[in-house]
Every structure is written in C-alpha cells, then in structure tokens.
Computed example of a mutant assay.
Amino acid sequence: MDNTMWVTNNTGWSDFILVGLFSQSKHPALLCVVIFVVFLMTLFGNTILILLIYSDAHLNTPMYFFISQLSLMDMMYISVTVPKMLMDQVMGVNKISAPECGVQMFLYLTLVGSEFFLLAAMAYDRYVAICHPLHYPILMNHRMCLLLVSGCWFLGSVDGFMLTPVTMTFPFCRSQEIHHFFCEVPALMKLSCSDTSLYETLMYLCCVLMLLIPVIVISSSYSFILLTIYKMNSAEGRKKAFTTCASHMTVVILFYGAAVYTYMLPSSYHTPEKDMIVSVFYTILTPVLNPIIYSLRNKDVTGALKKMLNVESVFQETIK
C-alpha cells in the first residue's frame, strides 16, 4: 500500500482531503455565495437577538437567557465548519491537517452535545413557567439558570473529550479523502483500516444516552405542559402557552431529527451524499432558522427590536 495513503500516530500525521459540498455541485461558485450569505445571516440574526435580550429589561428572563445561549452556540457551531469550507473553495485548497481535524471535531461534538442538553433545559424552564407559575421566580432564579447552562456546556464537552481522542487514534489507511465538508466522526470512521465495530457500538450507546436523557426531560415537560394547557379556562392563556412552546418544539424537531439520523441509524442507511445533505441541514440551516423562529413569532422580541430601531432613528435625527 502506498505510504502516502497511511495515516497513523506511529508513522506521522498526514493531511486529510475534504471532499465537500462543492465537488458535488454543478455550480460551486453560486453555492459558495449562497452559503456565505447564510453564514452572514446567521451571525447577524443571532448577534441581534443576543443584543436585544441583554439590552431590553423585558427580555431579562430565564427563557430569553436560554435563548441567548442557544444563539451563542449556533454562532460558534456554524463558525466551526463554514469559514474553513468557504476559504478552501476560494483558495482552491481542500486539505485539513490531522490536528486541525481533531480540534474541529472536538468543538463540533462539544457544541452539538451542549445544544442537546440546552434544549432540554429550555423545556424544563417552560414546564416550570406554565405548570408552577407561582414558584417560577424561586425555582428558576439566576443562580439556577447559570447552573443549568454550565451543566449543558460541561456535558457537551464530555462528549467531545470522549469521542475525539479515540477517533483520532485509529489508523486511517483506506484513503485520505473524507467524503464530507468537515471532520465528522462517522465520515472519518469510514477511512479506518482497523475494526471499528466495537467503537461504533460504544459511540452508538453514548449517543443514545446523550439523546435519551434530553428527550425524556423534553417529553415529560411537554406532557405536563399539555395537561396544564388543557385545564386552562382562559383562551388567551392557552394561545400564549402554545405559541411559546411551539417555537421551542420546532427547534427540537429540526435538531434532534437530524442528529438521530446521523448518529443512531445503522450504517446501511447512510451514503456520503445523504450524510452531507443532513449535515447541511443541521449545521448550516438550523443556526440561521433559530433566530427567525424565536423572533418573528415572539411579540416581546419584535417589540424590543422596534424600540431599538426607533431609538436609533431618533439618535440619527438628533445628529442631523
């Protein structure tokens, strides 16, 4: 076997080649522009949402604190993969070194894991707000919110620390070409020349646990929420509760659905093309959709945005 096709710790690291989205596209330049625009929209939308939450007193609540953390994760999430992909396309280079691949994989896994648990924390917050409104200020005080968010980040990093070192110590000798646009564990495992079945089983169990705990929390929270809404006498109260929960459930379905496909379905269901399409969905599209979902249907956020725009327009007129 050609030595250039052997990548191990023992013989020295070699670069991987990312065979990404653009090689599959008939119009790579147009696709590059579209992804760049989506990337800018993601950064702009999530930054505006974070600024609104921290500048408007009406949005200084636990629910919006969690939304601001979700926006922060989404900004970091898309920044881990997209800038590298776009730069490679512009520069005509599609290589990534093994250390860079490991760092990208660790950050990606950490952010994905953190978002899993954050969505569960957000569901619990809605459960307390709707089912125990009188105890809400006590149960969801600032200290508790910080504790929950810190726990989400910690559990996400555990996922990264568990999977990244093991994945990167496998010998990769089948090819240097990763049929993906970033270093994702399943795509990298396909390059290994050793038996990875045990590791894939353990990774599957780890992902089941990472998904199962948040899913149980979310399912339980929304079961109690639906029962409480059903018992409400006020039609306005029902509508407000449904609207608040609908936004969160939309994000949950989008994010968890893609994650279940990527990490829990058997390899027979996967092809490089399908994997890339699903990854585009939750790596590039979901981060740009989240601020839209949480802002367009939310009167508090749109009200804060109008207030900010009015203040800016008054300020500009004063300068003139």
Rank of each mutant, 00 (worst) to 15 (best):
N3A: 14
W6A: 12
T11R: 12
G12R: 06
D15T: 10
D15G: 09
I17G: 05
L21C: 01
V37I: 09
F39I: 00
T42M: 03
L43N: 04
L49E: 03
I50T: 08
Y54Q: 09
N60P: 01
L70T: 13
D74I: 05
V80I: 07
L86E: 00
L86F: 06
I96A: 13
C101K: 08
L107R: 13
L111C: 05
E115S: 15
A129N: 04
I130V: 10
P133N: 05
P133R: 10
H135K: 14
N141C: 06
H142W: 15
H142E: 15
M144T: 13
V149W: 12
F154N: 01
V158D: 00
L163H: 07
P165D: 04
T169M: 13
T169E: 10
I178L: 13
H180R: 04
H180C: 05
F182C: 08
V185K: 02
A187G: 06
A187S: 14
L188R: 00
S192F: 04
S194Y: 11
S197T: 15
L198K: 07
M203P: 00
C207W: 11
L209D: 06
M210C: 12
F224I: 08
N233C: 12
F242W: 13
A246F: 03
A259V: 12
S267C: 02
I277E: 01
S279C: 10
F281T: 02
V288I: 04
L296C: 12
D300R: 06
M308P: 00
N310P: 10
V314F: 14
F315C: 14
Q316A: 11
I319E: 07
K320C: 10
